[in-house]
Amino acid sequence: MTKRFDEAMRLMRRHNGQDREDGFALLRPHAAEHLDELIEAFRAEEDDRGLRAWLLELIGDARSPEALPILVEHLDHEDESLADWAVHGLQALDTKEARTALYRHRANNAHN
């Protein structure tokens, strides 16, 4: 892990809201560079729902085809914020595969 990523994650885990925001802001412009680390941190995080949502948002912000599987996996997540960030990430990715996943998701949910 890089120093930037470690520092951002340290801040995002603090209880102080401004520190958390600062950590997120530190990573946001570099999400693509840290995609593997973001996915690893997302999968490892079990307790902090807000942090998980931020990590999935950053994964989507990376706009990388490598993010497709984790975004698709969370389209129907019981936590609405994760499902919303998965949709947002797929829309930002805007590849044929991402659009197909969104189409299928919407079609499946239209019948429920």
Rank of each mutant, 00 (worst) to 15 (best):
L82Y: 13
D36S: 15
L68E: 00
E33S: 15
E7Q: 13
E80P: 01
L55C: 02
Q91Y: 04
A41Y: 06
N112F: 09
A92F: 07
H77I: 01
I70Q: 05
L26Y: 07
E66I: 03
A53G: 02
A44E: 09
H105N: 03
A31K: 03
D79F: 10
H105E: 01
I59M: 05
E78M: 09
R20M: 12
D84G: 15
E33Y: 13
K3C: 14
R106A: 08
P69N: 12
A25T: 11
A101G: 03
S64Y: 10
R20V: 07
D48F: 11
L71H: 00
D36N: 15
S81Q: 04
E73I: 02
L93I: 03
L27Q: 05
R106G: 02
A44R: 15
H111E: 11
R49E: 13
R28G: 11
E97P: 01
D36I: 14
I70Y: 04
E33R: 12
E46P: 12
N108F: 05
T2K: 11
W85M: 06
A101Q: 00
H34T: 03
D79K: 11
V87K: 01
D6W: 11
L51T: 04
N109W: 07
N109S: 10
E66N: 10
A101V: 06
G89Y: 00
R99A: 04
D79T: 03
L27I: 06
M9C: 15
T95C: 06
M12H: 07
R10M: 13
V87T: 14
P29H: 05
L51N: 05
D36W: 10
H74G: 04
L75D: 02
D6M: 14
L38S: 07
A62S: 08
L93A: 02
N16V: 14
F42S: 04
A41Q: 13
A107T: 09
L90C: 02
D84C: 11
L38R: 03
Q18Y: 15
R99W: 00
D61Y: 10
A101K: 00
M9L: 13
L51P: 01
T2E: 12
R4L: 14
H34I: 12
R106F: 07
L82K: 01
E80Y: 09
L68K: 09
L68Q: 01
A110C: 08
E33T: 11
A83L: 09
H15F: 07
L56W: 04
L51Q: 05
D47L: 10
A107H: 10
D48A: 15
E7H: 15
P69V: 13
R99G: 04
D76Y: 07
E7R: 14
H111D: 07
P65W: 05
D36P: 15
A101Y: 00
L75M: 11
H34W: 08
D94G: 06
H15R: 15
D79G: 08
A31R: 02
L102D: 02
D19E: 12
E57F: 13
E37C: 11
P69I: 13
M9N: 14
A107S: 11
A41C: 09
I70K: 09
P69Y: 06
S64H: 05
F24V: 03
A62R: 04
H105P: 03
E40P: 08
A86W: 00
